[in-house]
Design a protein around this nucleic acid. Sequence first.
DNA 1: CCTATAATTCTAGATTTATCGAATTATATA
DNA 2: TATATAATTCGATAAATCTAGAATTATAGG
Lengths: 104, 104
Amino acid sequence: MDHDGVAASLAELGNTHRLAVFRFLVKAGHNGASVGEIQKALDIPASTLSHHLARMAKVGLIKQEKHSRTIVCIPDYHHLQNLIGFLQAECCIGENMEPGAASL
Amino acid sequence: MDHDGVAASLAELGNTHRLAVFRFLVKAGHNGASVGEIQKALDIPASTLSHHLARMAKVGLIKQEKHSRTIVCIPDYHHLQNLIGFLQAECCIGENMEPGAASL
DNA sequence: CCTATAATTCTAGATTTATCGAATTATATA
DNA sequence: TATATAATTCGATAAATCTAGAATTATAGG
């Protein structure tokens, strides 16, 4: 993931609703949750939620699988790990190594 | 840092210019860099840069110290670590523990 | 005091984002 | 086929963000 890709993903997580959705999906685990379940749990109007989910899927934070009528949303842990790795790398170069901090 | 605080910080990092500024400051190390140095290095118009720096300072990503005429910007590593910790926690709860993944 | 420098604030326009009801599409089922 | 359900797309509005030139503030130095 390059600079702009990282920025794009962080921007998506940088919205309260979307962050809440992502956290909910992580809690839901590898099976994910349907759009309806998310909607019920977080109480976001359907069209608004759909908009946010589409954005998250676009940058790769989540995957969406259609099973007949319902669409299941699954968080992409690998994507998040890449993000975290990028930030971690940012944090640990230069003179800012604290004792015990992991280097890469 | 709570949910909204995390979202706010991620949103700030989720902008190409601001992410570039933050990366530049991390490379600069604990001494940070002056607004002018950032401006010269990244070639962003002064007023635009000032706007972005103010936003970053507001959420706590950077600190700003005034030394006579120049303002030195210093990244807040602790703040970033908090952010990373939050994301890491998000990533590692639920069923998504991979072998070797750190738990908290 | 005057000038140059560092940076911010002001201002305004362009773009993007957020919101959500209404209409639409797709699918299951009676 | 008719109906209900799941979700998206449409459309329109409000709000926030981005951008950058011009004006302003603060300070150093001649």
